[in-house]
């Protein structure tokens, strides 16, 4: 089960009102390589993992991804919360506003809703871990694009923090891959 902690993993500061940037950052809220995809992917892959170690790392990284999803939602919300209507008109955020105002929805920067087809889950642990490592690299690359698009210093600090976390996750999944390969080799020999 999960217990919610009423705090963010990182103190999000947003210095500007920028609906266009908010719309772009939705890529990490509900996009294919975003934080929701990451969290649901890792947490869903847990059931058939062969070792306690692999079940643990998927649980804990999956849980951290949900905390990142909350950080991203907070950035998006803070970028639009004080925006008057004339600062929304003509921006890519206008389509969201037409439907739901300033409310958040798991969609990507182009407005495509989140779908489970963004992720995969296999009984084969090696296939899962390669997917997970690729996902971390894709998320890192997306963060680098967003950092280039953003000129909000506070937002950039948070995006850099999140980018760094993808690098750490990639490292931990890589270590897990080696541990699982060892485990499978040992099983073959006995």
């Amino acid at each position: 089960m999960w217990i919610y902690e009423k705090k963010l993993e990182y103190p999000v500061r947003v210095d500007t009102c920028n609906p266009t940037l908010a719309a772009m950052i939705l890529e990490q809220f509900g996009g294919a390589d975003g934080e929701l995809s990451a969290g649901i992917r890792y947490l869903t892959q847990r059931w058939t993992m062969p070792t306690g170690q692999a079940k643990g790392i998927l649980t804990d990284i999956g849980t951290e991804e949900l905390a990142h999803w909350e950080i991203i939602g907070t950035i998006v919300y803070k970028l639009v919360k004080d925006a008057p209507i004339n600062k929304i008109k003509g921006t890519p955020f206008e389509a969201n506003y037409a439907n739901r105002g300033k409310a958040l929805f798991p969609q990507n920067a182009a407005g495509v809703p989140w779908t489970a087809t963004f992720i995969q889950s296999k009984e084969d642990p090696i296939a899962n871990l390669y997917e997970d490592m690729a996902a971390e690299q894709k998320a890192r690359a997306t963060y680098e694009n967003l950092i280039k698009l953003s000129d909000d210093p506070g937002v950039n600090e948070a995006l850099r923090f999140l980018r760094e976390r993808e690098v750490v996750h990639f490292q931990r999944f890589g270590e897990t891959l080696e541990i699982i390969k060892d485990y499978q080799n040992r099983k073959k020999h006995y």
């Binding site: 902690e5 705090k7 963010l8 993993e9 990182y10 103190p11 170690q53 643990g56 790392i57 804990d60 990284i61 951290e64 750490v168 996750h169 931990r172 270590e175 897990t176 541990i179």
Partner: peptide, 23 residues
């Protein structure tokens, strides 16, 4: 106080993940 808690909380995320692969 909340910021202090967030800092230590984050350090715990780091040690948690590290220990998962270096028990």
């Amino acid at each position: 106080l909340l910021n202090e808690l967030m800092e230590i909380g984050f350090s715990l995320v780091e040690t948690n993940l590290y220990l998962d692969t270096h028990p």
